[in-house]
Amino acid sequence: MTEKLIDYIIKMQEQEALREVQDMINNNVPVMEILTKCRKAMEIVGERYEKGEYFIPELMMAAEIMTKIADMTKFLIQKEKSEEDNLGIIVIGTVEGDIHNIGKRIVCFNLEANGFKVIDIGEDISPEEYTEAIEKYKPDLVGLSCLLTIAFDSMKNTIEKIDEAGLRDKVKIMIGGAPVDDRVCEYAKADGWAEDAVKAVRLAKQLIGVD
């Protein structure tokens, strides 16, 4: 019966998936087992996204189903991963002057689903706030997001500030957002850039050498 759960999730059958989880809970199926199925389903969703079969509606819908299952099982999926067994810690934010967060949220969810510990420090984040967050959380990676073209300078300034604070060698820095490309990456002196949420995960793994 448990394979049904995977099937419902990857077909975006929200009601059926939630009913299945409720049945599993009622039948005393261990929470870990439910969550393992969920993770398997999310892997398949990610693979299909990467192959170009699934798009943002499916990523959003799968994330929504996951959130509801997490509520039902009174168990946050990301918490279940202990501090030690994450692939790495990433501090992520939208740079100064830019308040957009939808792309960033999708990237965060995907990084979490793939084993990263994600610390989302919000939007309109100043260079100082980034350096403070790096000192506080000691991440392996820092992610800078933007939607506006005027944020290119914010990205550059942020990375300069991280450098000035003597923290540049301690972290890998990745950037993303609709207007970002090779030129922006070079301009801001980031370590890499990604154009979507799945590529962001791959880049994060590459940058910290776990791929």
Partner: peptide, 9 residues
């Protein structure tokens, strides 16, 4: 003509 080129090129 990309915004990134007009800004950084």
């Amino acid at each position: 003509v990309p915004a990134s080129l007009l800004k950084t090129g």
